[in-house]
Design a binder for these strands. Structure first.
Length: 436
RNA sequence: GGGCUCGUAGUGAAGUGGUCUAUCACGCCUCCCUGUCACGGAGGAGAUCGCCGGUUCAAAUCCGGUCGGGCCCGCCA
């Protein structure tokens, strides 16, 4: 019966059987320490028998083995207990030397990221690396927790589509049994359709962007949290929901994973329950004044503004997450709702965290006639199979609704304080990486 | 797509015309070591300095090209 690393300390005095990977050898002459890694962590094993030590000669980190030994309470051991009188069984001998460090922190300097990803398969066994993805897993877990608590239904929508979805982002074309299809750049249309079924839906899944972007914040395959909620009274309902969700997951991860975040040098969390909200025009003006430039003609925020406003809000308001609202109509997509009180702006807010756009949270135009009108104005064909079925949902009644596209990779990146979104992705895909 | 920038053992770095027959650390191999936990000590192997061409008496170092990265901008989330 296998005992896991975290259970060893509960078995003092007993002989236990552990299984895992050889993670570290320290030979001190008559005494050898080895660390065995399993899914919970590490166990220290003390070996004095020369024949047992000899079993590991020539075997590298990564060797799969089992150890039978007696658990001794030992204050000098990590975790307070360790295995003695160990009998080793090598299950999978590994003679190949790992091409990258497994037991010491890996370089995340920009120039070394290529090596980091090239040796990703083994580098992920590094405990510092795997910590990133454990935190990622838990963040997603807390997101689901929040969404279910608020009666959202998790959905899964197709990623192979008949035609262009939203416009804007470039799409990947694929051959679909002889006809041309595209990879979904977002579940936009399907999640809106699904508000007609469940009112509140969310999806966590991949989205594909074919942009030729080479920056620290872009990849070709992203993991998005898409939320859509119906029967909203105002756009603020959407902003509040996404804000509360973000507050919930961030405060919870900082509480539950404090030690891990600290060991990854994550910055301290500076967050308030109510995120400061600024309009695009306000940010342009504030940033312009502070930096002596005129950005009033810009339709979107420039990256430097995103960094600046988060920094500003952190210092002035004690919150490093902010909303930027009232985007100009020039930037709108056909399915956005124009602000009824000011037709020059759109009911659209972006969530920024630690200097980066994390989510975009607009209200949708839910009136069929108005939507078709906006489509035509944008030069789109309502009869195209990419739009026809989408419009059907509106024709048969969708309530006022809105939602967000929320970048999970960027959330993980910024939560941990990584410098490049790719570091938060197991096997990142970018303009020049398709493997591993 | 535009601009800038980088490329030296498996990994991370130093070296910016000669003293480089290329240095250091980690990892690897051999040996010593009974409380290590980034163990310590002695020794060893491992690099045609991304590639091609040029300048020069002399190139890891300067120049041009090329290939491969990175960062910023644009686009976008």
């Amino acid at each position: 019966m296998r005992v896991l690393s975290s259970e060893v300390k509960d078995n003092v005095g007993k002989t236990v059987h552990i299984e895992g990977w050889l993670h570290k050898k320290r030979l001190l002459g008559g005494l050898t320490f080895i660390n065995v890694r399993d899914r919970r962590g590490l166990v220290q094993v003390v070996i004095q028998d020369k024949d047992e030590v000899e079993k590991l000669r020539g075997l590298q980190i990564g060797t799969v083995l089992s150890v039978d030994g007696q658990v001794k309470e030992e204050p000098r051991a990590p975790g307070g207990a360790e295995l003695h009188d160990a009998k080793l069984t090598v299950l999978v001998p590994v003679e190949a030397e790992p091409p990258i460090e497994i037991d010491k922190p890996l370089s995340h300097k920009p120039d070394n990221l290529d090596t980091l990803f090239e040796h990703r398969v083994l580098g992920l066994r590094n405990l510092q690396e795997s910590k990133i993805f454990k935190i990622r897993s838990e963040l997603v877990h807390y997101i689901r927790e929040f969404m279910f608590k608020h009666e959202f239904v998790e959905i899964h929508t197709p990623k192979i589509l008949a035609g262009a979805t939203e416009g804007g982002a470039e799409v990947f074309k694929v051959d679909y049994f002889g006809t041309e299809a595209v990879l979904a750049q977002s579940p936009q249309f399907y999640k809106q359709i699904m508000t007609g079924v469940f009112e509140r839906v969310f999806e966590i899944g991949p989205a594909y962007r074919a942009e030729l972007s080479a920056t620290t914040r872009h990849v070709s395959e992203v993991t998005m949290l898409d939320i859509e909620m119906g029967f909203i009274d105002a756009h603020e309902d959407v902003l509040d929901m996404v804000q509360d969700m973000t507050y919930y997951v961030l405060t919870k991860i900082y509480d539950q994973y404090a030690a891990e975040l600290k060991s990854l040098n994550a910055p301290d969390l500076v967050l308030k329950e109510e995120f400061p909200r600024y309009t695009v025009a306000e940010v342009h003006e504030m940033y312009g004044k502070a930096n002596n430039v005129d950005l009033s003609k810009e339709k979107d925020l420039i990256p430097a503004e995103e960094r600046w406003i988060c920094d500003y809000a952190k210092k002035q308001e004690g919150c490093e997450a902010v909303y930027v609202t009232h985007f100009p109509v020039e930037a709108m997509k056909f399915y956005h709702m124009v602000n009824p009180d000011d037709p020059t702006t759109v009911m659209w807010g972006d969530l920024l965290f630690r200097g980066l756009e994390i989510a975009t949270c607009p209200q949708r135009e839910h009136h069929y006639d108005k939507l078709v009108e906006q489509m035509k104005k944008a030069g789109l064909d309502p009869e195209h199979p990419g739009y026809k079925y989408y419009l059907q949902a509106f024709k048969h009644g969708l309530p006022a609704h809105g939602g967000c596209g929320f970048g999970i990779d960027r959330l993980v990146e910024k939560t941990i304080g990584l410098a490049n979104v790719k570091e938060a992705i197991l096997f990142p895909r970018d303009i020049n990486r398709l493997t591993p």
